[in-house]
């Protein structure tokens, strides 16, 4: 396989879909926990439902990752750079799953059912457990900060390829 060949369509679509959805999730999350305005309740509902979609998409992406292996773009890169890229990617996968899972768990332990676009609802614990709620809620916040940091690193990597190495890494994903 040629290293400049594009990523498979499946990987490209899930990548960009995920990029847009994660941007929405982070923005909506940070806004809604501060806002006392009328739209807060609607955005909270969307946040939970779309967060669930992210979890589904994540699973799909993991499947694609194994069924559509992509070649490493770095041609003759130093080993540590590969390691950094790999770690950032790996951690991003962990957080893409960790965010929705801690979100859902926080609601489960707060005994608050999560409605997915009114189609169906996730069951909640019969009795709220404030300690387990807190663990899930605080993790959700911490992981969100981690995800933002990783996205920035990821963007740094893109810039590096685009402007310093001037290779076609970005093109392969578009």
């Amino acid at each position: 396989m040629m290293t400049d060949s594009k990523y498979s369509l499946a990987l490209r679509i899930t990548h960009w879909l995920m990029a847009v959805l994660l941007a929405f999730m982070l923005v909506s999350g940070l806004l809604m926990i501060r806002s006392l305005e009328g739209w807060q309740l609607n955005v909270l509902g969307l946040h939970k439902a779309i967060g669930f979609v992210v979890l589904g998409l994540f699973c799909l992406r993991v499947v694609f990752k194994f069924t559509h292996p992509a070649n490493r773009a770095l041609h003759n890169e130093l080993g540590w750079k590969n390691k950094v890229a790999d770690s950032v990617h790996g951690l991003m996968y962990v957080l893409m799953a960790g965010m929705p899972v801690t979100g859902l768990l926080s609601q489960y332990f707060a005994s608050r059912p999560v409605s997915i676009f009114g189609l169906f609802s996730f069951p909640a614990a019969e009795q709220s457990n404030i300690i387990l709620y807190s663990m899930a809620r605080e993790l959700h916040g911490l992981l969100a900060a981690g995800l933002i940091a990783l996205i920035l690193l990821h963007l740094g990597g893109v810039m590096y390829h685009q402007f310093i190495k001037q290779d076609n890494t970005l093109k392969r994903m578009i």
């Binding site: 707060a110 404030i130 807190s134 605080e138």
Partner: peptide, 10 residues
């Protein structure tokens, strides 16, 4: 408020 008091309990 729930988050604050929950964290303190944790």
């Amino acid at each position: 408020s729930y988050r604050r008091r929950a964290k303190e309990k944790l």
